[in-house]
Nucleic acid binder design. Structure first.
Length: 174
DNA sequence: CTAACTAAACCTA
DNA sequence: TAGGTTTAGTTAG
C-alpha cells in the first residue's frame, strides 16, 4: 500500500493506493498530523471483501495531485482515476461504480441509483453503500441526494456535503 | 436485532 | 390532499 498527503487549498488530503488503484482518498484537513493519522486509520481499517476485483491499473499520482488542487480552487475538473474495488461487497461495488459515473456539477438521487443497478426498492441500501465509500471525491457520493431535492445524509457531516456541492456550482443548496 | 446517507405504497381522516 | 405508517434491501456491529 502506497500512502501520501496532498496539499490543496482546502488542506491536506490523505491518499492510499495499490497496484489496482485508489483505496483511500480522504477529505482535506488543515492539520498535517491529523491528516496523516486519519489516513493511517483508514488504511488499517480496510478489509478485502471481494478478491478478484482488483485488476492491475496504474495510478498517475502527479495528475491526481494537480487535479485535486484545481478542484479545491473551484475549477471544474474530472477526477477519473483507477479504483481498487476489492474492499467492497458486490452490492457496494455496483452502487459505487454507478456513482463514479456522475460527473462534476451533476446530481442523482439514491432512488435513481437504486433503479439503475436493478434494485428499485433499494434506495435505502444505496445510502448504506455510499456510506462505505473510502474514495471520496473520485467516487462522488456527495453528488447523491434525496429524491425530494433535500440533501440526504453524509458520513463526514452535512456541512462537508454542502461545501463540496457549493464548489461544484450548487451554492444555493439547503 | 438494529441503525444507517431512502422512497414509495398504503391507509386515514 | 395532507399527513402518518409500513415495507423493501444491504451491511456492520
Amino acid at each position: 500500500m502506497n500512502k501520501a498527503l496532498i496539499h490543496t487549498a482546502g488542506g491536506y488530503i490523505g491518499a492510499a493506493w495499490t497496484k489496482s488503484g485508489l483505496a483511500v482518498l480522504n477529505l482535506p484537513l488543515a492539520d498535517v498530523v491529523e491528516a496523516q493519522t486519519k489516513l493511517d486509520d483508514a488504511v488499517s481499517n480496510l478489509k478485502v471483501k471481494s478478491p478478484g476485483n482488483n485488476p492491475e491499473q496504474v495510478l498517475d499520482f502527479l495528475d491526481l495531485e494537480s487535479r485535486l488542487k484545481k478542484y479545491f480552487q473551484g475549477e471544474r475538473v474530472e477526477l477519473s482515476f483507477p479504483i481498487d474495488w476489492s474492499y467492497y461487497t458486490d452490492f457496494q461495488r455496483q452502487v459505487l461504480q454507478r456513482v463514479y459515473l456522475v460527473p462534476w456539477g451533476q446530481l442523482a438521487s439514491y432512488g435513481q441509483v437504486a433503479r439503475e443497478i436493478g434494485s428499485p426498492r433499494g434506495s435505502r441500501a444505496v445510502g448504506g453503500a455510499v456510506g462505505a465509500n473510502q474514495v471520496l471525491l473520485v467516487i462522488p457520493c456527495h453528488r447523491i441526494i434525496a429524491g425530494d431535492g433535500t440533501l440526504g445524509g453524509f458520513g463526514s457531516g452535512l456541512d462537508w456535503k454542502r461545501k463540496l456541492l457549493c464548489l461544484e456550482g450548487h451554492g444555493n443548496y439547503k
